[in-house]
């Protein structure tokens, strides 16, 4: 195997590709007058839902309403203001059967309606893909215009997992017909905090 590494690197070192500078990250990147409105529009285009919540005190109530609507009896919450219902162990397989997971997003991206979520070591990683339904709590102030601004705020210096999630799991592999709920969450609702 060491031989493979040396051979590949030697072959690449011999090659005569013209040197080219890295262009850097600055640019005339898109910005929006009303980020929240664009975020909402693009999230809905990705089959997600957006529900404004006035303050943190109202979160539990909003989640309970969604859990009722989705008939989710087991709720796994990673958000302090919302309680879990039904125990979950550290085994990622145990997340199977969770009806609703409640996650906290670090930021949202207006141009594509995505939210950035990380595992933060709080729960098994399967919590992002195995539950039937997802609720993501996002502060309206944490919405950035586009991906360049998003990456400017993210750091990858430590071991961990992070994901841009835009809407629920979906597929169009059968005749280009969009079907929501391929393998992962069947619905994704963003609870938007403090959107006055």
């Amino acid at each position: 195997m060491a031989a493979a590494r040396e051979e590949i690197l030697a072959a690449l070192a011999k090659r005569t590709m013209a040197p080219a500078e890295h262009p850097g990250s600055e640019g005339p990147w898109q910005s929006f007058r009303d980020r929240v409105a664009i975020f909402r529009e693009r999230l809905e285009a990705a089959a997600g839902e957006c529900v404004p919540v006035a303050d943190e005190g109202r979160l539990a109530e909003a989640v309970a309403a969604i859990a009722r609507e989705r008939s989710a009896s087991r709720v796994l919450s990673l958000v302090a203001a919302v309680r879990s219902i039904g125990a979950a162990s550290r085994d990622p397989h145990d997340v199977d059967g969770v009806g609703l997971a409640v996650l906290e997003a670090q930021l949202g991206v207006a141009e594509n309606g995505a939210v950035w979520i990380t595992d933060g070591g709080l729960a098994p990683r399967s919590v992002f893909s195995l539950p039937e339904h997802l609720v993501v709590v996002l502060r309206a102030g944490a919405i950035v215009d586009q991906m360049h601004d998003a990456y400017a705020r993210l750091s990858f210096s430590e071991r961990g997992f992070g994901c841009f999630l835009s809407g629920p799991s979906k597929t169009a592999d059968i005749e280009q017909s969009l079907v929501i709920g391929a393998h992962g969450a069947r619905t994704l609702t963003v609870l938007l905090l403090g959107d006055a």
Partner: peptide
């Protein structure tokens, strides 16, 4: 689409 639904960043193995 504006972005794939899951754009997952893996930095090292999970615990």
């Amino acid at each position: 689409q504006h972005l794939t639904t899951y754009t997952s960043h893996f930095h090292g193995p999970r615990p």
